[in-house]
Amino acid sequence: MKQSFYQYLMTQRNPNQHDEVTQFANNAFFDHSFPKQESDFEQLSNYLEFNGNYLPSMTVFDTAYNAYLASESKMGGEH
């Protein structure tokens, strides 16, 4: 079964690492409104544009989403 973007993002959490994607994951964990079951780029992007004040730039989301797609293709997931 395909994992949601949030499920992927949670694999990137690490309190001892400080790169932008890891910080995004750490902060998204505390965002109780994050669309946890969503995998669609547009839906996630729209949510983060209005609610992702913890993102320094939407480029961080783009980077994380591209890594998510790459991980899904390695696992045989559908896009």
Results as ranks from 00 to 15, higher is better:
K2F: 14
K2T: 09
K2Q: 13
K2R: 15
S4A: 07
F5T: 04
F5S: 06
Q7L: 09
Q7R: 14
Y8W: 13
L9K: 13
L9M: 06
M10R: 15
T11V: 09
T11S: 13
T11C: 08
Q12G: 02
Q12A: 10
N14I: 08
N14Q: 09
D19W: 12
E20S: 09
V21M: 10
V21C: 09
V21P: 06
V21F: 10
V21D: 08
Q23V: 12
F24H: 01
A25H: 04
A25G: 03
A25S: 13
N26H: 02
N26P: 09
N26Q: 07
N26V: 03
N26T: 02
N27Q: 14
N27I: 00
N27F: 05
A28I: 00
A28N: 02
F29E: 10
F29K: 11
F29C: 12
F29A: 05
F30W: 04
D31F: 12
D31H: 07
H32A: 04
S33L: 04
S33F: 08
F34A: 03
P35L: 01
K36G: 00
Q37A: 11
Q37L: 09
Q37I: 03
E38K: 07
E38R: 02
D40F: 04
D40R: 14
D40Q: 04
F41K: 08
L48D: 05
L48Q: 03
N51A: 03
G52Y: 05
G52N: 04
N53V: 04
Y54V: 04
Y54N: 01
L55I: 06
P56D: 03
S57R: 05
S57T: 06
S57Y: 09
S57P: 00
T59M: 12
T59A: 11
V60S: 05
V60T: 11
D62E: 11
T63K: 14
A64Y: 08
A64L: 10
A64H: 07
Y65E: 09
Y65I: 03
A67S: 00
Y68M: 05
Y68L: 08
L69M: 13
L69P: 01
L69Y: 04
L69R: 13
A70F: 15
A70S: 15
A70D: 14
S71W: 05
S71I: 00
E72Y: 02
S73I: 12
K74E: 03
M75L: 15
M75K: 14
G77T: 01
G77H: 12
H79R: 13
